[in-house]
């Protein structure tokens, strides 16, 4: 079997606050194969975006990475010095940010923001070459080159997110992290953009970590899916297997909360309650207060992630016995 391109090992992130640290990501381990599309899903505040930013080490304070490793092509990004990390950023790992509105610098033109990326990595020998390449990149996401001179506020939300994708692909990265790339967009633009990303992914073959809270979209796009709940990874499985045979009660609840793409005749229902505060997570399994099938053990001991098949694992006392 091939070596994973990205291997997250026991990664933990804390938000330092006046009343002590709040754990936003708790001992998470996850692998990505080259060219693989892995979906990461969970409710808001479950640690998905925190993980994405931790991989690139761009977590804004007061968040601190408190433990673990992020092995990318065999090298630990967390142990790398700033200079080496800077070259690694974007040349190998790129990211499309959550909010199309706020991810572009309002005072620089779109062209400048693509060109400075190219220039910073020596990917364009001259300003003219950088412009030509920037125009070409805009072309690949369906934006006309005369938009190079536009400022972000002159573009629609969808166009801005396309620019974000063009910037991400500028240096032909091996891994692209999509952090809820379509959250701020309407449904039609969302579908267009996702189809475009899929198309580009098929053509160029980069690996994708696709973060979203929309399980339906994810199951269409991803090869493998990881489900997060309250800062922990609770289940990971190939997309097809997850859809048909999810084992964790939380995943099952999530699946029931989204309409099926194949129009299966299932009643939609939401999971009662809301995610726990990370400041004081419940004892035992973090999902037990909302779990319909919880037993005494769930209230006392925290379940470990246990393998259920070649690529399937879940953290639940009931499935692991």
């Amino acid at each position: 079997m091939a070596e994973p391109i990205l291997s997250i090992r026991d990664l933990s992130v804390d938000y330092v606050s006046a009343d002590g640290p709040v754990r936003a990501l708790d001992h998470v381990s996850l692998d990505l194969m080259p060219g693989e599309v892995v979906g990461v899903a969970g409710e808001s505040g479950c640690g998905k975006s925190t993980m994405a930013q931790a991989i690139l080490r761009i977590l804004p304070p007061p968040a601190v990475i408190s433990g673990g490793q992020v092995l990318f092509e065999g090298r630990d990004l967390l142990a790398m010095d700033e200079g080496a990390l800077r070259r690694m950023r974007w040349e190998r790992i790129a990211m499309v940010f959550q909010s199309a509105m706020d991810a572009l610098n309002p005072v620089l033109t779109v062209g400048e923001q693509i060109a400075d990326t190219l220039r910073a990595h020596g990917a364009a020998p001259s300003g003219r070459a950088a412009r030509a390449r920037a125009a070409e990149l805009l072309g690949t996401v369906g934006i006309h080159a005369d938009r190079l001179e536009s400022f972000p506020h002159q573009l629609s939300g969808g166009m801005r997110q396309r620019v974000g994708i063009a910037i991400a692909l500028a240096l032909d990265p091996a891994l692209v992290i999509l952090d809820e790339p379509t959250t701020a967009l309407d449904v039609i633009v969302e579908r267009e953009i996702l189809e475009e990303i899929q198309e580009l992914q098929r053509k160029r073959g980069f690996a994708v970590m696709f973060i979203t809270h929309d399980l339906t979209r994810m199951l269409q796009f991803a090869n493998r899916v990881a489900i997060f709940y309250a800062a922990r990874l609770v289940e990971v499985a190939p997309a097809g297997e997850l859809r048909m045979a999810a084992r964790h009660p939380y995943t099952q609840g999530l699946l029931r909360a989204f309409p099926s793409v194949h129009g299966g005749d299932v009643d939609l229902s939401s999971i009662p309650g809301s995610p726990p505060s990370l400041r004081s997570p419940p004892r035992g399994c973090r999902f037990h207060p909302r779990c319909a099938v919880a037993v005494d053990l769930c209230r006392e001991r925290e379940p470990e992630l246990v393998a259920l098949g070649p690529a399937h694992a879940a953290a639940c006392h009931l499935v692991t016995g």
């Binding site: 800077r86 690694m88 950023r89 974007w90 040349e91 940010f97 909010s99 572009l104 610098n105 620089l108």
Partner: peptide, 24 residues
């Protein structure tokens, strides 16, 4: 987000501070 993106893009710190952060 745009300063975060600038850092993620691997821009030199001087450019992140001046053209992205301080400029705004």
């Amino acid at each position: 987000d745009y300063v975060n993106l600038a850092r993620a893009k691997g821009l030199p710190p001087s450019r992140v501070v001046l053209r992205y952060a301080a400029r705004n």
